[in-house]
Write a protein that binds this DNA or RNA. Structure first.
Length: 561
RNA sequence: GCGCCCGUAGCUCAGCUGGAUAGAGCACCAGCCUCCGACGCUGGGGGUCGGGGGUUCGAAUCCCUCCGGGCGCGCCA
């Protein structure tokens, strides 16, 4: 609904420039936003305040001139000037009725936009190494990353979801040795238990499956356990396959999917690592010192230079990261979003520096990072410590089983991702008013229930008639609901622009509240056919909007609870 | 010590690129089911927006500083 208003404002500004009221080169950085208060209309702009100085006028006088220069439009009912010089726009009811028509006509596409139209985008998230079960942090990464992918998709982008994992490094070697030790009957604490081993019980499960000769299928591979505890290479391959399969199963249960699985080992096989090193050297940002090859990341804002090839000839972790992001670029992704735990933020600068040092024209803001902060898990009023080494461990699978997929996803997405958050298992489990996800889902189910009632009473909803008769809905709660629904496209745009899916979560709560309030204030299934059709039209528009919003969060919209 | 994130009602958190009297949920108090599902609705109390400066018509929002949390600062990932 904003676009036509902005167009009107721009026309008014052009008129004033032509009339000499405004200088031709006046900057037009102004804001058009939803008025917080209904008394201030539907939208308000500070354009007169922003332009008062360059126009050498006072804000209220300029506002008067602007309003006078505003073209006539049927969408506008009234335009006021208030306070220091705000211009308040009161939309006509027809503007909202048309928006309800859009919501119903566009259905699942209501709220989509063209912000990122056609941009080939890769969204990378989770990217856990296959050394153990996924924990709640991975859950947050999955919920946030997946939701961002959905937001960009409805914004027109051509999105690929990607999972990157290390299948060759030191940690994998550790995994293999740990599994081997288990296969030989050792346990943590035994004299010959490896020093840096993974102590979790799940390693024992992997070892047993290996010894049984189980067959593990994952990501188009099948790996069978070779049963031989001395074959470390076979153990490594089996353990990676086993844990990857488990992680994939957990993510699938969480509703988080991927288009690509990208292996670190492939970067070596395809020569991408060597190519990256070669290019970095060629562009003169490297030097040797102490037998190691350094990258002069300080040329690009880092506080010290970084080793890229160690004196033993192997690479530090960040070089494959640079090679990996180069590969994203080379695969044609002009936009890359990388979702990471905030504990990795130290590596961002290095990877970006490496990409710039390549001199291949990769933009400075490539990739765009979205970080998520730690999640503290509470159960029974106490913090549950997460540790791969210790026994106490809440896995993502535990949460899905205990709390449910929808509530877990909602809780993990409802907070701004760069804020630390507390995940209270007892709260998330409670199916009460403590729990916003059920409140929102219930609003959706309620409308479904009304339609079932309609059917049971042998009545029929005439959609076209309902839309035509929306003018009969002029009550306070009905208007409020229309306003909420019409905000949805703006919220989607804001969330997609800032890569902040939590905005959708907050919005949905407000929308659900408006619907519940409306539900209590008015009866839907009344005898007056026109009023009935109109009220159902509004309710269905709300239901559609809730369903669309929940889908962006990866949360289901049940027809009954 | 340096860098990044954060500090808003008793608790958990919103507050969009600065805007018009600071919001929601929970908890607490008082009401609402002969009525389309009460997993709901209505009303009420409750805040020096961590402290202090600055920028300007206007600051929870931007800048500086201090205090208090978290996370990073390896030839680990």
């Amino acid at each position: 609904m904003k676009a036509p208003l902005i167009s009107l404002i721009e026309q008014a500004l052009a008129n004033l420039r032509n009339a000499g009221t405004l200088p031709g080169d006046a900057a037009t950085a102004y804001v058009l936003e939803r008025a917080k208060n209904r008394e201030h209309g539907d939208f308000a702009t500070n354009v007169a305040l922003a332009l008062a100085k360059p126009a050498r006028s006072n804000p209220r006088a300029l506002a008067q001139a602007l309003v006078a220069a505003l073209p006539q439009n049927t969408l506008l009912q009234k335009v006021d000037i208030a306070g220091p010089g705000f211009i308040n726009f009161f939309l006509s009811p027809v503007a909202y009725h048309e928006e309800m028509r859009h919501a119903l006509d566009q259905g699942p596409r209501y709220g989509s936009n063209r912000l990122a139209a056609g941009r080939k985008t890769v969204v990378e998230y989770v990217s856990a190494n296959p050394t153990g079960p996924l924990h709640i942090g991975h859950g947050r990464a999955g919920a946030v990353g997946d939701s961002i992918a959905r937001l960009l998709t409805v914004s027109g982008a051509d999105v690929a979801r990607e999972f990157y994992y290390n299948d060759a490094g030191v940690q994998i070697e550790n995994l293999a040795r740990s599994t081997q030790a288990r296969a030989r009957g050792c346990k943590p604490g035994d004299a010959d238990w490896p020093a840096d081993a993974y102590n979790g019980d799940y390693i024992g499960d992997v070892a047993q499956a290996y010894l049984r000769g189980d067959s593990v299928a994952f990501e188009n591979h099948v790996v069978a356990g070779a049963k031989n505890p001395d074959d470390l290479d076979a153990i490594r391959q089996f353990a990676v396959a086993y844990l990857r399969r488990e992680q994939n199963a957990d993510l699938a249960a969480f509703g988080v999917k991927f288009d690509n699985y990208y292996l670190e080992s492939s970067l070596y096989q395809d020569g991408k690592v060597e190519e990256t090193v070669r290019e970095l050297i060629k562009h003169g940002h490297t030097y040797e010192d102490g037998g190691a090859l350094w990258l002069r990341t300080t040329d690009f804002g880092d506080d010290k230079d970084r080793v890229m090839r160690k004196s033993d000839g192997t690479f530090t972790y960040f070089l494959p990261d640079v090679a990996y992001h180069l590969a994203k670029w080379q695969r044609g992704y002009t936009r890359a979003i990388t979702e990471l735990g905030a504990d990795h933020h130290g590596s961002l600068m290095r990877v970006k520096a490496g990409l710039q040092a390549l001199g291949t024209g990769i933009p400075k803001d490539y990739p765009e990072y979205v970080l998520h902060q730690m999640v503290t898990v509470m159960r029974g009023g106490e913090e549950v410590k997460l540790s791969k080494r210790a026994g106490s461990y809440v896995t993502l699978r535990d949460l899905i089983d205990e709390v449910g997929r929808d509530a877990t996803r909602y809780f993990l997405i409802a907070r701004k991702s760069d804020s630390q958050m507390v995940f209270d298992i007892d709260l998330a489990r409670s199916q009460s008013n403590d729990n916003p996800v059920y409140y929102i889902q219930y609003a959706h189910a309620r409308v479904c229930s009304v339609l079932r009632q309609l059917d049971e009473r042998g009545l029929r909803w005439d959609r076209a008639n309902g839309l035509a008769k929306l003018a009969q809905l002029d009550g306070e709660h009905e208007t409020a609901l229309m306003v909420e629904i019409s905000r949805y496209p703006e919220v989607v745009e804001a969330a997609a622009t800032s890569l902040e899916p939590h905005l959708i979560a907050s919005y949905l709560r407000e929308l659900a509240q408006a619907l519940h309030t409306y539900y209590h204030a008015h009866q839907f299934l009344v005898d007056d056919v026109d009023v009935r059709d109109a009220r159902i039209a509004l309710a269905v528009a709300a239901r559609q909007t809730i369903a669309n919003g929940l889908d962006l969060l990866g949360v289901s919209a049940p027809e009954q609870m």
